[in-house]
Amino acid sequence: MNAEIQQIWVYLSTTPLLWLTLTLIAYQFGIWLFGKLGCPPLLNPVLTAVIILVVLLKVCGVDYQTYFRGAQFIHFLLGPATVSLAIPLYREIEIIRKSFVQIIITLAVGSTTAIISAVGIVWALGGEKIILLSVAPKSVTTPIAMGISEQIGGLPSLTAVVVVLTGITGAVGGDFVLNRLRINDDKARGMALGVASHGIGTAHAIQKSRVAGAFSALAMALNGLFTALLLPVLVHFMQ
């Protein structure tokens, strides 16, 4: 009996099926739990799923490469999803065109704030240089941030983690900050979430309102462009 289970385990752990399925289950469990307990911001489904999967991997003694062989099919979709952000932009093109100047100014200020606060806080708290370079693009969506991190000499895998945690922080704490500052305008709320916490912030904004979602998608895309152009130059001059 034991040998049989062992055999099944050996088979399953070599196919991508197991961890792909478990990733979907963990995320759906996260959504279920989130709804069940009245949507408390701290129970962000992404956070729940990541914690469940990390614990599972540790308990089963499975390494990240093995996990990723299955999860890569989900990870791959980040690219097409980034391309698809053109759709909410197109749908709200009129309202975006009306606020174009505000968007560009806000983006420049927000994007710079994101980089300077990320680097400045690590520096102030005595972080190493490799951490400093890895967190610099943390407000940009994963595929872009990893590319920038590699280019400026950070650790792309650490960047990916910090980016996801940044996104979760924005989705968890963003509404609290925005409500405290009495920012009720959906355009401003969307811009703030998109610039600071990329796709996870945008996913959160889309759920709240269509306008906030479109502005968040736009902010995320423009911030990706802006940071990708600005950061390598900044790092070059700082060194």
Binding site: L57, Y67, A71, Q72, V161
Partner: peptide, 21 residues
């Protein structure tokens, strides 16, 4: 595109699990 964007948050889970490394 709407399908992909509806599950946008899920797509970040594999990168997030990278925390383990």
């Amino acid at each position: 595109g709407g399908f992909l964007l509806r599950y946008l948050a899920l797509l970040f889970v594999p990168a997030g699990v990278g925390v383990i490394t």
